[in-house]
Amino acid sequence: MYSLNQRFDNMEIPEDEHMTAGHVACAGCGASLSMRLALKGLGKPTALVVPACCWGIIPGAWPQTAMEVPFFNTAFMTTGAVISGLKAAYRRRGMDDVCVVGWAGDGGTYDIGIQALSGAAERNEDVIYVCYDNEAYMNTGVQRSGGTPLGAWTSTTPAKAPKSEPKKDMDEIMIAHRIPYIATATAAYPHDLIAKFKKARSMRGMRYIHILSACPPGWKTPENMSIEIMRLAVLSNIFPLYEVENSEVFRQTVIPDEVEPVNNYLRSQGRFKHLTQEDIQVYQREVTTRFERLKERFDRIAV
């Protein structure tokens, strides 16, 4: 099942840690693991800007913090703008080597923060923007966002009236901005995730990394299944792992030997419990169509 063609599987994982244990994330949280791995890829000097989201509380309440890099909490819709200003300040101070990273959830990216993100991308700001996507407003108790997938239960799309629209295709929106680097990643493939952050750090201009991040309370899954479920999302092409340079060069970085049906992914989570076999067929068609569209572009240009 895990036999994969991985572009980055021989990379060594850095031993350095830039966040400590003792943070307050839930057990099995994909977002806390993603941050730990991302910081390994980024290294120092790095500064983080985080809007309202789970990561606003994960480091702990004042005066405690789990972070060993400068960390600024900001208002919900401002990540793209604050990182633009912060990078300009470091440039003024002759500290252009500081990597400025915005780290927002799907609500802060797909919905309320999309304007500031789009502005920063259009200006090709020299920053990295990360969306850790747990597919709903998890910090406020699982409300629907533009990143919530078709058919999912949330506390504002109850099982009797689950989300009737497909997930907004944020990656395509970012591709349309024609920025230097876009990648998808998940903590289920740590080598791939770290390699993408390392690569992003080595580049200049706007970089966008989209991380699928399991949320046991929001997805209604057991805490010890997060890695398994994020891996299934990749293997069933629900969340293909790839990277895009200048909106021209597309590369799939983890290629499943055998594609799994979406059924296994959906059935592993309580938030999809109410779906009928028919619903799942619709879901499968949606996923296949999107992946085929993406696949056409993979390695189209010889590198």
Partner: peptide, 20 residues
């Protein structure tokens, strides 16, 4: 920074000010 809204103008100023 030619931002895309006044909300972002103030946000960018706060970010820059936090950069010292």
């Amino acid at each position: 920074i030619r931002v895309e809204s006044e909300h972002s103008a103030m946000a960018a100023c706060i970010g820059a000010s936090m950069g010292g």
